[in-house]
Design a protein around this nucleic acid. Structure first.
Lengths: 196, 196
DNA sequence: CGGCTGACAGATTTCAATATCTGTCAGCCG
DNA sequence: CGGCTGACAGATATTGAAATCTGTCAGCCG
């Protein structure tokens, strides 16, 4: 049983995730989470300093799911161009899937974005660092030419905001159009990364 | 006097703009507009079929202000690269200025964006067509290489969304950082437009 | 002792009654 | 006649009282 012994942060996170998924960020309460765990809501506050930090922890865990496959692409050794294309396509697919399959947690994510949460900042930092890594590979391989890797990575990330920033989620509805737009933007960026 | 003879759509638009600027999109009412004009609110409905269409007409007029200087750059005959850079910088500056100087009308604009209004669509179409025009010039001048002009223009517009899409307005606060980010993205795009 | 409980204060949300707004239209007025 | 008015119905917003929630803490229990 999961209810053996004492309450763990992991148990609380899972319960909180369920509650957020069911009620959404505006309706979910700490009391709901405690009720789902069969404890008093004071116990939850023993493990998380506030509702906001619990919400952040849940979202951080939820966002991390996508990092695994992206990280795998980052540390591959093939041609950087193909890898960066696949990395961006994978990121886009992951975000799109989250928006469609998990609307309430996606809405929670949006709340954190609006609040400039540190969790979101860390998420963006991780992603940009991975782009940076691939671009660096591309420069070593002689495929890319770039002055400053980190700056270029940031520019690539901003240029593709349309396809990963949750504020653009509504524009992902038409899969065909999104795919075409993405490929058009990619060919422009690839050409830019290769330099003149 | 502007109150001579009968009520004109222009008078209503100006009054509505004032009311929106003062109360914002959530508080402004048709009754407020009628009160400002000294007429009954039924009269307003004689010229605009609904509150939504009045709001759209005001926003369309407000958005059009920026089109003049952008259009001027579009029809110049100098090097396309420099012109596109100046066009994008001008667009960014105009949007940023609107967001800072006219927050309530900017909020109204955001409401229309969220509602997928035809007005916003037309605005985006006009802007993309101007980019297309400049890119076309660049191809003729031999400065740019692009397969499909309209597709490339759309890609450039999406790539720079961070600097003109109102959903990113909060990220424009730091002028220095925005400027640096914009230039980094521009150099990537310019390199991409020039082709390999 | 370390962790849980339940009661508490202040902040936030809900709910239902009330007021205002949107959109329509018959009638009036120039 | 073309356009404005003012009254109206239904929809939406506001308000203030009651309920619920957040965050804290003294005390209990294993």
């Amino acid at each position: 049983m999961t209810s053996d012994s004492s309450l763990t942060p992991e148990q609380i996170l899972s319960a909180a995730e369920d509650v957020l998924r069911r009620f959404g960020p505006t309706k979910a309460t700490v009391v709901d989470v405690a009720r789902a765990l069969g404890v008093s809501h004071g116990s939850v506050y023993r493990h998380f300093r506030s509702k906001a930090s619990l919400r952040e922890a849940v979202t951080a865990r939820w966002l991390d799911q996508a990092h695994h496959s992206l990280h795998a692409i980052t540390v591959e050794t093939g041609p950087a161009g193909e890898r960066l294309h696949r990395w961006l396509a994978t990121l886009f697919a992951a975000k799109r899937k989250k928006a469609l399959d998990d609307p309430e947690l996606f809405a929670t994510y949006l709340v954190l974005v609006a609040e400039n949460s540190h969790t979101v900042e860390a998420h963006l930092y991780t992603l940009t660092a991975q782009i940076s890594h691939i671009i660096q590979d591309g420069i070593h391989q002689g495929e890319f030419t770039a002055r400053h890797t980190a700056t270029t990575a940031h520019a690539v990330f901003q240029a593709t905001a349309h396809f990963h920033d949750p504020v653009h989620a509504a524009e992902w509805a038409d899969a065909e159009r999104s795919k075409a737009d993405f490929e058009a933007l990619w060919s422009l960026l690839l050409s830019g990364l290769k330099g003149r």
